[in-house]
């Protein structure tokens, strides 16, 4: 019992330290400058976050596909905030082995990972390749119509 307790500090010290945690606090991003069809990459907790201003075509594509046919079934509606359907916010880290996918590439008008060839659609859902899951959606909310807070 005492041995395990004595071990804990030696394991726990490996976790992110206080300054790293503090630097990982929520950030605000202004969406106004992002034109339709454009996307930007911001960094939060050292991770690239893609914010896409999707076109009507991209949204329709994402919503017309039967959910049950997807490797990691999830509706597009579940991955965006209601009323802000044109905005897709995802963590740009391939769920396979952590590479950064390239936006606006691949066969699904979404993301393409150059490392092992995973392809994500315009909703950031995995469609093809070795990645097991969809690109994760980070915790975020709209603080106003043109501003979001990530974290």
């Amino acid at each position: 019992m005492g041995g395990v307790a004595a071990l804990w500090p030696f394991v726990s010290q490996m976790n992110p330290d206080a300054s790293t945690i503090a630097a990982g606090a929520p950030i605000e991003v202004d969406l106004a400058p992002i034109a339709e069809g454009q996307d930007i990459k911001v960094f939060w907790r050292g991770k690239p976050i893609y914010i896409s201003h999707r076109t009507k075509k991209q949204i329709d594509e994402a919503r017309s596909v039967p959910v049950s046919s997807l490797p990691d079934p999830q509706t597009d509606q579940a991955r965006v905030k209601e009323g802000h359907d044109q905005w897709l916010v995802v963590i740009g880290i391939c769920t396979h082995l952590g590479c950064i996918p390239i936006a606006h590439e691949g066969n699904y008008d979404g993301f393409f990972c150059p490392c092992h060839g995973s392809q994500y659609d315009s909703s950031g859902r995995i469609r093809q390749g070795p990645a097991p899951a969809n690109l994760p959606v980070p915790p975020y909310q709209f603080v106003s119509d043109s501003k979001i807070q990530i974290g």
Binding site: V11, M14, N15, P16, T20, G24, R45, G46, K47
Partner: peptide, 17 residues
């Protein structure tokens, strides 16, 4: 993975350890 990195991605703490 977070424990290995000492952060939320590979970074300075990872390099140090």
């Amino acid at each position: 993975v977070t424990l290995l990195w000492g952060g939320y991605s590979v970074g300075n703490p990872t390099l140090n350890r």
